[in-house]
Write a protein that binds this DNA or RNA. Structure first.
Lengths: 339, 339
DNA sequence: CTGAAAGCGCTAACAG
DNA sequence: CTGTTAGCGCTTTCAG
């Protein structure tokens, strides 16, 4: 039927109005008479016209594209977030241009350039560490950015996380109350703020009760490294409880404990994770964990970003959302605890 | 330092050449003298210039954006695919604009419109059913599209799947060889071509050996429905083996069987899935399954799409990639089987 | 409210 | 190879 693409000029011709009238009809806050609008909409519908988003972006300076940078998608927390983020942004008329950035430093530089090439209206960096140089570039380019699930010392950078410190502390309290005395930690990547904060809260919680960490190994948020860390940790003087820095690794740790080392969870050892990814609730794991409220975090992120897009003068915000303890079956439950 | 955005004209001025010379330097196959190129690159570097991808897209007609439509991200197969797809496309200089399209029919219409608004160079529809009307619209708009993990009768539509029929048949062969005689199926969504093909191969495999399906329930590819289906199925005359239409549901089925119904897998009942998602290999499930070779499927998809972008006359292709059986521990292994 | 006109930043003929 | 000249499709003053 119709060829490739209809332009606003063609619609204007058919409707018997000027091209700019057509533009106005499709521009949210413009003033057009009802009569003109009707004529234009009719012609547009007949022709199958839709405004060209790219041309509009070039001239208006706003693309309604949000760049999302994410490192990995194998940790279920991120697909979950991506889905919610994309939905929330779609609802606001924005769309998500996705960039995978492996942890390797050089790459993220490239990625940022490409993002800026597309004139994105804003950037969400999920769980990637940005050099302060990069954030400066974004600021210079006038593109607002918010860090998701990672924060930075730079007070000019907006960031949304859960209250990782408090979360870590809750885990310590639970384990201590459960009577554990050989409490260990399998860390993620030490470069991540989430790791540092969770661990700091955890250690402080132990210390407040006069205890110290029984053992510590690094899993780098990777499955195979978490398994290896578990083996090393249990080779001698095994702990009776372990706080794993995220659920993703915690599930691998449980598998190693149960099927390789022949230990019972929580009989021989309690395991606690962090995130509350969907799989944490699956009965095979039934993992006790700290919930990062993905929905709330996403809502907050979108809120900050859109506010900053609407008014670049909006001050940056750093939010650390409350993170509840989710009691399940992978850690001994202290007497009398209901929550 | 520099203000918002540098234009090619500013670079041209500083380099002492014409604006089009600058454009040519940044256009892959254009002819410029080494000398001009050097001057331009130098000026560009000093100014921090980068071509505006959107303006380029408007005038050249190619955005280097690929639209990806995906329904859900909670089935681990899709994040995995998305990550690989995004990486493969990035390597070719394309970027992915993502659209979540809940199964609801009306929505996908909107999504397609918005996709087209952004002048995407191509569309990948992962596991979403398109009405033939929609595919016609894409064709009319001259935007190539390939279906991922779903196929359609329309022979003009490119599609990449695994060989679902053969895969289903392999499952039947395995179960039969394992001595099972009460073999059941938990289906996904009957509207999905993958479901129909897998089940057809499975049923034909049973029939070829003179057997029939012991029971059938529908799980619609959703976790809670799969659990409910399992309960119904095992309420009376329970099967001794069940082929679940994908791994995502299969894991929920195993949990229900083991922790709710108190059955042993594979002692009391064998379970086989489809996809070989990462979690299928986790020891808690150790799920026997049919592997969809995500990497190969992605490579094929990208290949088809780019060929069609490069030359719109390229005929559509429909590929059903070989899908190997992955023997693990959730199904009884017949005597003497190595693969 | 509406049309005419001037761009947005860039690519693509076109002569030279 | 290079500069000049047209646009791409659209938004946005600017008169009226």
């Amino acid at each position: 039927m119709e060829r490739g693409r209809i332009t606003s000029a063609e619609v204007a011709a058919r409707a018997g109005v000027s091209q700019s009238a057509v533009s106005r009809v499709f521009t949210p806050g413009a003033s057009v008479s009802q009569k003109t609008a009707d004529k234009v909409r009719k012609a547009a519908a007949e022709l199958g016209y839709r405004p060209n988003a790219l041309a509009r972006a070039v001239v208006s300076g706003r693309s309604r594209i949000i760049g999302l940078v994410v490192a990995y998608l194998d940790n279920q927390f991120y697909p979950d977030v991506l889905e919610r983020l994309s939905n929330a942004l779609q609802a606001e008329g924005y769309h998500v241009l996705i960039f995978m950035a492996a942890q390797t430093a050089g790459n993220i530089d490239t990625v940022l350039d490409e993002l800026l090439d597309y004139q994105v209206d804003g950037i969400i960096a999920a769980s990637v560490a940005l050099s302060s140089d990069l954030s400066a570039r974004c600021r210079a380019a006038g593109v607002p950015m918010v860090l998701f699930n990672r924060s930075q010392d730079d007070p000019d950078m907006s960031a949304v996380t859960s209250d990782n410190y408090a979360g870590g502390r809750k885990v310590a309290d639970l384990l201590l109350a459960g009577g554990h005395r050989k409490i260990a930690h399998i860390a993620g990547w030490d470069g991540a703020s989430t790791q540092r904060d969770r661990e700091a809260g955890f250690i402080d919680g132990l210390r407040a009760a006069g205890h110290t960490l029984h053992a510590r190994e690094i899993g780098n948020f990777m499955l195979d490294e978490a398994c290896a860390a578990t083996r090393r940790m249990f080779a001698q003087d095994p702990p009776d409880a372990v706080f794993v820095a995220n659920d993703h690794m915690a599930m691998a740790v449980m598998d190693t404990l149960r099927f390789e080392l022949g230990l019972s969870v929580p009989g021989d050892v309690s395991v606690v994770g962090y995130d509350d990814v969907p799989a944490a609730g699956w009965l095979a794991y039934n993992l006790t964990t700290i919930r990062q409220r993905a929905n709330a975090m996403v809502a907050e992120t979108v809120d900050i970003l859109l506010a900053q897009i609407a008014d670049p003068a909006t001050p940056p915000r750093r939010e650390a959302l409350d993170a509840p303890l989710i009691l399940r079956g992978s850690a001994r439950i202290p007497e009398g605890w209901t929550q």
